[in-house]
């Protein structure tokens, strides 16, 4: 059992490493510009879902407003780069802005529990949309017409940044899970009061989790703007996009390291494949897949595979024992 577990992790690392290398050489070899675009958005949503899962999956706080961190990062980066301080400094300065925002937010919001936390964070998305689109902030945010940065061909650079971001986010989630911090978060998810009794500093842990998840999401926002060069507020702060990190994480399997990655892969493939082949009922097909995954697999696709493996393993062991017990 231990051996299998170990080899599985090694196998995952090996496979992941190969995948990253393939994606890294992709733009020079097999990947068209369209393919690069599709994978870029896949990576952005993968890192969004992955970073969402630090709070949603590990800590058990469903943050429906995760996209606000993405938006703050995006706008902070845009405003900095329009101040002509260069992309490098803009990327670097955007991160503390998002972290500070998350820290400030965590003080009131983390007092809320479960369902109430989810709805309060969801409400925040609308507030941010309102603020950046307003006439008052239009001189720096571009108002309803969206924020625009000096157009350069940043697509390749942003592709690699997105790839790096996804890798770093995934590794961080893995490291967090295996650390004392991660076990603390899991104990909060299982029972916050008991965790507190056992000496977990729940307030600090939750706050840290929120800040870490916000930093990754904010960075994703920065890369997103660098790639697109123009982003209108309602296209990132609308309802469809708001729910996406959550649905992708749920689809793949929330609370597992590779779940969000699988979720975004599945989502992108279905989405792009369907849209370009059949022009009708694409929404319906995605809906049916959500429905089936929701019914069949509590832990998303990853959970489904896991239960199947456990069942098969159990059956084979049963057989073995049956064979052994034969007189």
């Amino acid at each position: 059992m231990v051996l299998i577990g170990l080899s599985r992790i090694r196998f995952a690392f090996l496979l992941g490493g190969l995948l990253v290398v393939a994606l890294a050489v992709g733009p020079f070899t097999f990947l068209s510009l369209y393919g690069l675009n599709v994978i870029f958005f896949l990576l952005i949503f993968a890192s969004l879902a992955q970073s969402y899962d630090i709070v949603g999956g590990l800590t058990g706080y469903i943050n429906l407003g995760h996209i606000t961190f993405f938006g703050i990062g995006l706008y902070a980066f845009g405003i900095f780069i329009n101040m002509r301080i260069g992309p490098l400094f803009s990327f670097m300065l955007g991160v503390p802005v998002v972290a500070l925002f998350a820290a400030a937010l965590s003080i009131p919001f983390l007092r809320l529990r479960g369902f109430y936390f989810a709805v309060a964070t969801l409400a925040l998305v609308g507030l941010l949309d309102l603020a950046v689109g307003s006439n008052a902030l239009a001189p720096i945010t571009g108002g309803f017409a969206g924020i625009r940065i000096v157009a350069q061909n940043n697509q390749f650079a942003s592709y690699y940044l997105a790839l790096a971001l996804t890798v770093v986010t995934t590794l961080s989630v893995y490291l967090i899970r295996t650390s004392k911090f991660g076990r603390g978060l899991l104990s909060i998810r299982d029972d916050e009061q008991i965790a507190e009794v056992w000496g977990v500093n729940t307030v600090l842990y939750k706050r840290l989790a929120l800040i870490i998840s916000a930093i990754f999401a904010g960075f994703a926002g920065e890369v997103y703007l660098w790639f697109l060069t123009i982003v209108a507020p309602s296209t990132v702060l609308g309802l469809d996009v708001t729910f996406r990190p959550v649905t992708i994480a749920l689809l793949g399997g929330t609370g597992s390291v590779i779940g969000p990655l699988i979720g975004s892969l599945l989502f992108s493939v279905i989405d792009q494949g369907l849209i370009t082949q059949v022009s009708y009922f694409s929404r319906g097909v995605i809906g049916i897949i959500f429905l089936l995954v929701g019914l069949a697999a509590p832990g998303g696709v990853v959970g489904f595979i896991k239960t199947q493996m456990v069942r098969r393993f159990a059956i084979s062991r049963q057989r073995v024992s049956r064979v052994r017990n034969r007189p």
Binding site: G60, L250, R283, G284, I286, V293, G294
Partner: peptide, 24 residues
């Protein structure tokens, strides 16, 4: 807890199907 999360997927999926059937 799992039922709540699964219900999000199932009902959201159902709502997408409903939207598409209506629109078409």
């Amino acid at each position: 807890n799992e039922a709540l999360l699964s219900s999000v997927l199932v009902t959201l999926g159902f709502s997408l199907v409903l939207q598409d059937v209506w629109a078409n």
